[in-house]
């Protein structure tokens, strides 16, 4: 079974302890460290952990939380937060998330393939994303799209995630309307 190594950075001892207990209960997630401040993360090296789970309050230290690289960071939300703050985290859970949601967020941010332009703020679809959108609108499955474009199904999923983020549309029916109105495909 694949295992996920997590470090927790959370100023509240109650929250840190609770998150740790719920993650350990998963069976495949190991909590290797828990700190109260981002500065303490410097004791770790980037390859020691797969994910950092940290309070949204530490958004200003996001580079430290990423261990100076691309380590994904799952944010813990305990109060209202603005959209810009939320966007800086790979995923966000809150104090009312279930144990399974918390655990799945760890697996998702590790297993998600690095997408083309994934950190770009541009809402323009890339050429490849337009190709995928057209095939989605024509009713092809992810597997069929992967075969058509000679890419992996994981990459197709990643493109679809970006398309949903950029267009605000997730369903095939909605994407079809979007594709026709934006003249990416004919209405026939």
């Amino acid at each position: 079974m694949k295992r996920y190594r997590v470090a927790i950075v959370e100023p509240s001892a109650i929250v840190a302890e609770g998150v740790g207990v719920l993650l350990r209960a998963s069976g495949d997630i190991d909590v290797i460290a828990a700190y109260a401040t981002p500065a303490e993360l410097q004791r770790l090296r980037a390859h020691d952990v797969d994910v950092v789970v940290a309070s949204l309050a530490f958004v200003r230290d996001i580079d430290l939380l990423r261990l100076g690289g691309e380590t994904p960071v799952v944010g813990i939300q305990s109060s209202l937060a603005d959209v810009d703050t939320l966007r800086r985290f790979s995923a966000v859970v809150n104090l009312y998330s279930s144990d399974s949601e918390l655990q799945q967020s760890i697996r998702d941010v590790v297993d998600a393939p690095v997408a083309e332009h994934s950190h770009s703020e541009s809402h323009e679809l890339s050429e490849r994303e337009r190709d995928v959108l057209v095939l989605v609108a024509r009713g092809l499955t992810n597997k069929e799209i992967a075969s058509e474009l000679n890419i992996s199904p994981h990459t197709v999923m990643s493109h679809r995630k970006n398309i949903a983020h950029k267009t605000g549309i997730r369903s095939v029916a909605g994407l079809t309307v979007y594709a026709v109105l934006n003249k990416l495909i004919d209405s026939e």
Binding site: G168, I169, R170, S171, A173, G174, V177, Y178, L181
Partner: peptide
């Protein structure tokens, strides 16, 4: 998803 799609469109 579909309800949000309607709003997005």
């Amino acid at each position: 998803d579909r309800t949000n799609d309607l709003a997005s469109l």
